[in-house]
Computed example of a mutant assay.
Amino acid sequence: MTARRNNLVLIGMPGSGKSTVGVLLAKALAFGFVDTDLLIQSDQGRTLQDIVDQDGYLALRPIEEQILCRLTGQRQVISTGGSAVYSDAAMTHLRSLGVVVFLDIRLTTVRKRLGDYSLRGISKRPDQTLEALFRERHRLYSRAAEIVVSGDGRNQDEVCQAVLAALPATFNQGARE
């Protein structure tokens, strides 16, 4: 693994554990942690939900792409927003930085974890159901991922351990360079 790809990039649906598991992974690997949703909010001076409510769901995507394409650094766990996979440019850049891991959960798990998802700043068409969004994104996550780890039936520590176990043997070596 080259020094350029010594980051760990987490993708998946809202509620899949990207932020929670990401922090655990960062601790286990002695990495930094970056939550790109927080970077977007800081850059824009407002919440994701405000962006979606005020400017429409499509307004979030170019902002997210810009933030993701500006990411640099080494030895970081990068938790992306659920809509990161809509940008080919962003995903190409993220793959150049690190190993992309899809935290995969079933739709029933998404529903259970999100509750009222109308307050989560989810970038979706106003007429789009959660089921349709899930199907659309699942294909994109699966295509973008180098590693897929199921979060169903596992707590956050178990998901963290499953991700660590799924990493290529060369990752920890490359991560220390």
Rank of each mutant, 00 (worst) to 15 (best):
I67E: 06
S83G: 13
L114H: 00
D37M: 04
T20S: 04
L167S: 09
R154K: 15
F31Q: 12
L29F: 05
M1G: 15
D50Y: 02
V110W: 00
I122G: 02
A3V: 15
G98I: 02
Q76L: 10
Q161T: 04
E65S: 13
D35H: 07
L39P: 05
A175T: 10
S42W: 05
R139V: 15
V99E: 13
P14G: 08
I51P: 02
S123I: 04
D53K: 08
D53G: 05
G82K: 08
A144T: 11
L48C: 09
D43T: 15
V34S: 03
N7Y: 07
L167Q: 12
M91A: 04
A30Q: 14
V148Q: 11
R120E: 01
R4S: 13
A175V: 09
V52P: 05
Y86L: 07
V100C: 01
R75D: 02
T170S: 15
R137P: 04
E146Q: 14
R5T: 14
L167D: 10
T47P: 01
P14D: 06
S83H: 04
Q156R: 14
V34H: 07
L71D: 04
Y86E: 11
Q173N: 05
G56C: 07
T36E: 10
L8K: 03
Q161K: 12
Q54R: 15
L38A: 15
S42I: 06
D37K: 01
N6H: 04
V21T: 08
Y86G: 07
V9R: 06
H93K: 09
T47S: 13
L164N: 02
V159G: 01
G115Y: 00
A144K: 13
V100S: 01
D43S: 14
R111T: 01
A30W: 07
S118N: 14
Y117P: 00
Q74P: 11
D35W: 09
I40L: 12
L39A: 12
E64F: 08
